[in-house]
Write a protein that binds this DNA or RNA. Sequence first.
DNA 1: ACCTGAACACCGTTCAAGT
DNA 2: ACCTGAACACCGTTCAAGT
Lengths: 215, 215
Amino acid sequence: MESVLTEAVALLDEAGPSALTFRALAQRLGGGVASIYWYVASKDELLDRATDHVIGGVLAEIEAIEPGDDPIDHLRAMSLTLFDAILVRPWLGNYFMRNTDVQGNALRLYEKLGQPTLRLKLTARQRFHAVSAITTVVVGSAVDLGQEPPQEVLDGAVGRDEFLGRFAATWRELDAVDFPFVHEIVDEFDGHDDIEQFRAALDLTLAGLRLQADA
Amino acid sequence: MESVLTEAVALLDEAGPSALTFRALAQRLGGGVASIYWYVASKDELLDRATDHVIGGVLAEIEAIEPGDDPIDHLRAMSLTLFDAILVRPWLGNYFMRNTDVQGNALRLYEKLGQPTLRLKLTARQRFHAVSAITTVVVGSAVDLGQEPPQEVLDGAVGRDEFLGRFAATWRELDAVDFPFVHEIVDEFDGHDDIEQFRAALDLTLAGLRLQADA
DNA sequence: ACCTGAACACCGTTCAAGT
DNA sequence: ACCTGAACACCGTTCAAGT
């Protein structure tokens, strides 16, 4: 079982989600395709369990973070750790917390993420919504930013900057009257940093949360 | 071409993303499978174009919204409209804005969403980040909340409330010392309203944004 | 310019049968 | 308890050939 998950994750890491097939996995394990069904009832369950397997590592990182004085700073630090993990493995975002019955580590991570809100002056409902909001921002940003780039970028034939630059060039050609906003931000888009973009989104949510707690 | 997209969307609406296969689509169009490849180079392109096709309708709704006095209220109104559209068709979230070259309507929607920020006292970078953050919250929430529920819920054999209730029951059995946060919010989770959850997440981001603009 | 049948190279899943 | 080969019912995509 352990080795099924380890090899599944290895396959995902090496060649992406499309490389994780029962046939490829069976070959790595040196067995038949049907054997895997003894450990797992479906591909969805395999992905749920593989997800929880790596979330176990993330949970350990998150538990190692010092709470500190400010609950919101604590939330920020944990969010960044989770974000980093999903950015490297975007497939995590599609399965994380999908089924807490099989994802025990995800549930524990959710708990950890929620604990700082207990130190804030909020209602139970506000705490529930706050943690949901943060999870959405973290997972949503990571999945979005980690989307598989086109083949040419993966090949290394075209760098990320050049890829962004091409879009920027198209945008600059748009009518300035019809697209004032796009023109306003095109220089920011060109060559922008993904992590900074996430950090900004997270900070807006956390600023809103602090306001709520201080009200 | 028009009818290819119309039928593709109909298929997606009636039976979900898994029902959109080239074979099923060809059958509805009364032609061969290979014909579709004359209009579209791949399934990804088909989904990009189908997405932009329905985003065209959403764009019209969004353009019909009165700007009003407060740019942030305007942003909120537009976000809710986009959210509603994606909640009904979660597959939109996976493709929206993925390739603005083929998604002209998505680009126009992005522009509309950005325009209110021009009325706020922000830097170009803050405007770029603000619209990215809002888009992430809207798309992330809608995709998350619209995730295909398990078969038993779709069948109607088990209601949504009962489905949530089961998880809540499991959570209530967790150790109260190890899971203080889960216990704190389990009553809120049980029978919670998805739209309210999204609204709360959006409002946190918008509150943070207002703070930034008023600084 | 538009469409087709038939094939290719895959998938996840099942099942009777083995040890 | 654990594994297997072989099949089933699908996929997206290609291509030579038709009108």
